[in-house]
């Protein structure tokens, strides 16, 4: 499994390279910023509150639908590999599975889950 090992090496090395580049370049000789220089940008006005908040995502129903389809993706990876060997049976089985999910998708569409509520 030299492949996966290599992928891990590349990932770690890439993350560390860019992280180190940021750290090295911003470390030496920087003065501390003053208070007005650190005010978040809002077009010239001063914010009164912290921006971090319990953000109301309007697409929460859609996010649930994503979970259902994402599970389906997990099954599809092995399915794709054995598909040609298993033939028509595999096609029909996956079609049934997907159709059930699509019913859910159509229902979500009808319930306007893809719009901001």
């Amino acid at each position: 499994m030299v492949g996966i090992g290599a992928a891990l090496v590349v990932f770690v090395a890439a993350v560390l390279t860019v992280g180190a580049a940021q750290w090295v370049w911003s470390a030496p000789g920087e003065r501390d910023l003053t208070v007005p220089e650190r005010v978040p940008f809002a077009g010239g006005a001063e914010p009164e509150f912290h921006a971090w908040n319990r953000f109301h995502i309007r697409y929460y129903a859609m996010a649930l639908l994503f979970l259902a389809f994402d599970m389906e993706m997990v099954f599809m990876y092995p399915w794709a590999v054995v598909f040609v060997r298993e033939g028509l049976l595999a096609l029909i089985e996956m079609l049934m599975f997907i159709l059930i999910l699509v019913v859910g998708m159509v229902y979500a569409w009808r319930e306007k889950s893809f719009e901001w509520s």
């Binding site: 492949g3 290599a6 992928a7 590349v10 990932f11 770690v12 090395a13 890439a14 993350v15 560390l16 390279t17 860019v18 992280g19 940021q22 750290w23």
Partner: peptide, 16 residues
């Protein structure tokens, strides 16, 4: 600091 590093790491590992 992590965000740009992670983004590049993902781009790199995706190319492997």
């Amino acid at each position: 600091i992590l965000a740009p590093s992670l983004l590049f790491g993902l781009a790199a590992v995706g190319a492997v």
